[in-house]
Design a protein around this nucleic acid. Structure first.
Lengths: 320, 320
DNA sequence: TGAGTCGATAAGCGATACTGATGCACCGTG
DNA sequence: CACGGTGCATCAGTATCGCTTATCGACTCA
């Protein structure tokens, strides 16, 4: 089961063709055929049906294992190389769309350090950090107060909470529920919702409301594929659906143009007005929006940056 | 970074000797030397100091990655073999010490299935299931009500909650606090505690009480290395320290000899008497003792067994 | 100083893993 | 229905790899 053979196997399975895989991997078709045969001999079970090429049940199992396995290989290699090289002069920060509120952005600096912020999908943050594509990750998510986020295990990473704030149900300004001081999620499963990567995913709402996966409720009325928060708020204001956002998302929007104070955190209570929208605190379930920094072992300027992030509001750290 | 080289590397690092590693792995010393050199060439960094043999910083990083990597390799192999073989006639169930209360034990059966129950450490349950050493795992732990347990990610396993019950602080019968209807953990950090694998670990108490790791509090007075629950209760009765147990542990003890009713679950409230001990419900923090079944993809009799376990009290399932 | 230990290195050789050529089953086509 | 085309398996040949045996050189301890 050497990673080489594994890579060939997943490529063949993905492309559904030995020859095509050979082309992509820079081998001859013959070599690919022999590699797959070797893997099958090693495991003692056929992995692929031929003609048409499709994974057997055993092959499907192997495919499920192969991706994380190869990911961890890459992560291990990157980690060792990083340890061997000295402390870096530049740092890439990979952040999920809502993981960089003003309070954190302000602290993304270090002495003699060039910082690049890159927004990536929530699923990719940990992978980018593990594989070394980014030196530090910022991941946001929803959890019970001061509970750590659940992250995919891609290697020995340290996760430290850096911010928690309340969640707001964002409604159009004139909405009948816009006046309350708090809303229960369970009462909103009949409403129409906005699906956007920059906001809380609708599946997550179902899960939080305790609905089994695949069940009805929290119907998606509109899907926005971009990352711009202002657009999300416009869509809500236009009545395309509700959404759930961390308080700072509205606060930042409200404060745009004004000198940045310290309103980012999570304080205050009651509704928050935005441009054509109102944010009403989510009262039940009792969950918060949480941001965590992910990083491997750091030294030098990047370590200072992370120290600056974590030496503040946050929560306890942990090394999974 | 082929797993073969990795295995050699970790063996050398563990034994601190090329020759000894060669002996253990069945190679010559020369082969081991060449393998380590190949790994270092591949990664482009020295991994071991020679004479004395000790890992370099890069080597230490690799060691951290190597163990989970090799574990996942084993898991993948086992999973494929299981998929290739038919449904098994016998099933090994790996359970952590407190993960098999009467209510679950009663349902550990299947048609045409020979069941072996094996008690293993809490850390090993997931590994045994992933590596195929056990077909099904039973893992207990502490979590907020209906929250899943945090488990090490060793592969694509399914975890399903099968039981939740309240936790009891177990005190000697005459203890001043033995009369109350509920106790807060925070009020007990001055007490002496019993450390035993069959009971909740003291570090876990500190964590639950919100004490940062390494801090004082919940001092261990006595350590018991065995797995026998009756002994644990005797030690508590003898005043060697308090402990925290799921309700069924005391209930089963009380009911020993009587025809087994349905008292195992978690119902009732207020103190529970055992042999020379009293169990007072833990009132704060609001956590429960939870048992989950872990398994890979199952078919045939084992699937029926798991179905029988989960088609009951439990909680929702999930596939991490 | 000489024997012993331990890792690195060199030489030799069988196993491995690739390429290129060929074989064979299947499919669409004139 | 014959025929060429496609796509995977197989075979032969060869370069490389990875092991063993043998030897070296550095260090340790008597």
């Amino acid at each position: 089961m050497d990673p080489h053979l594994l890579r060939t196997f997943v490529t063949v399975a993905r492309l559904g063709s030995f020859s095509a895989a050979a082309g992509e991997l820079g081998y001859t078709q013959s070599a690919v055929s022999q590699q797959v045969a070797a893997l099958e001999a090693d495991l003692g079970a056929p992995l692929l049906h031929r003609r048409p090429v499709a994974p057997t049940p055993a092959g499907r199992r192997l495919l499920e294992h192969a991706e994380p396995l190869l990911l961890r290989h890459r992560a291990a290699r990157a980690d060792v190389l990083r340890a061997a090289a000295g402390p870096p002069r530049s740092l890439v920060v990979a952040a999920s769309p809502l993981a960089c509120p003003p309070g954190i952005a302000r602290r993304l600096r270090g002495p003699r350090l060039e910082v690049t912020l890159r927004t990536v999908g929530r699923r990719d943050v940990a992978e980018q950090v593990a594989s070394g594509a980014a030196g530090v990750g910022l991941l946001d998510g929803i959890s019970a107060p001061s509970d750590p986020l659940r992250l995919p295990d891609v290697g020995p990473l340290t996760a430290v909470g850096v911010a928690e704030e309340r969640l707001l149900v964002v409604l159009p300004a004139g909405h009948p529920l816009a006046g309350g001081r708090g809303l229960a999620l369970a009462d909103l499963d009949g409403a129409l919702w906005l699906q956007a990567p920059a906001a809380v995913a609708v599946e997550r709402l179902r899960e939080m409301a305790g609905l089994p996966a695949g069940q009805e409720g929290f119907r998606v009325a509109f899907r926005y594929d971009g990352h711009d928060l202002r657009t999300v708020l416009s869509l809500v204001a236009a009545g395309h659906g509700l959404t759930l956002l961390p308080a700072s998302a509205l606060a930042a929007e409200r404060a745009a143009g004004r000198p940045a104070g310290r309103e980012g955190a999570g304080g205050g209570a009651g509704p928050v007005a935005g441009p054509g929208v109102v944010g009403v605190p989510l009262a039940a379930p009792r969950v918060v929006h949480r941001v965590e920094v992910l990083h491997g072992p750091l030294q030098g300027p990047p370590a200072a940056l992370v120290g600056g992030l974590t030496g503040s509001p946050g929560a306890g750290d942990r090394a999974p």
